[in-house]
Simulated scan of single mutants.
Amino acid sequence: MENINTPQLGPLLQRQRKSRNLTLAQLSAVSGVSKSMLSQIERGQANPTFAVVWNLTRALKIDFADLLEGGTAPVEPSPIEIQSTAHTPEIRSDDGRCRLRILSPARMAGSTEWYEVEIQPGGILDSAPHAPGAFEHFTALTSGFEIASGGTTKDMKSGETARYPADVPHHIANKSAKIARGMLMLVYR
């Protein structure tokens, strides 16, 4: 079997940071990645997770693919940020019946998050309580959803929006025989 070398992300990230005249502290502040972790990554002493690399590429305003290719041209600043479908992260339930596409920027995690939700027939997106005061707003784009929160259950029709506490056990279920789609916003207080 051919030995494939993994990309050395540390020097590539360091080159990108320095080309923008950013200190480790400045990049840490805009990316949410600790200064010590950044230093370890740049020196090749830590292997960053995908989430860490994602936050760094967003903070440096470069595409993930450009980082791997060693590109050094920064993305021109624009008041409009476009997130391609290929670069939109998604979460799948263990059984594969629920898919959430993360539409909110990584920098907003823990304050306001929004998702495109797709649930297969019979699928249930079961959630443990979020932080105290968390609240969800779910808009059904198709019929067949059931929302449960705090011991109360409600059925939804296409176009309806449910608002409910998310700091208690809750779920979104597809009770229909078709794929169900909706939009979910999670707000932390």
Rank of each mutant, 00 (worst) to 15 (best):
K61F: 00
T57K: 05
M37Y: 09
S28H: 15
I62P: 00
D66H: 05
Q45A: 15
S34A: 05
G44C: 07
G70Y: 09
A51Y: 01
V52F: 03
S39K: 01
F50D: 04
A65D: 14
K61T: 07
G44Y: 09
G70E: 08
W54T: 06
K61A: 10
W54M: 12
D63Q: 08
L60M: 03
P48A: 04
T49A: 11
G44K: 10
R43V: 10
D63Y: 01
Q40Y: 08
N47G: 10
G32A: 15
T57A: 11
E42V: 05
G71Q: 08
G71M: 06
A29Y: 06
T57S: 10
T57F: 06
F50S: 10
L38V: 13
G32P: 11
L67A: 08
I41L: 09
L68V: 00
K35I: 11
I41Q: 07
Q45N: 11
S39T: 05
A59P: 01
R58L: 03
E42G: 02
S34T: 09
K35E: 05
L56I: 02
F64L: 13
S39A: 14
I62M: 15
F50Y: 15
E69F: 06
G71F: 02
F64W: 05
F50C: 11
A65Y: 08
V53A: 11
L56H: 00
N47H: 05
A46S: 14
G71A: 10
N47T: 15
Q45S: 14
K61D: 12
R43E: 15
V53S: 07
Q40M: 11
S36M: 15
G44T: 06
K35H: 11
A65F: 13
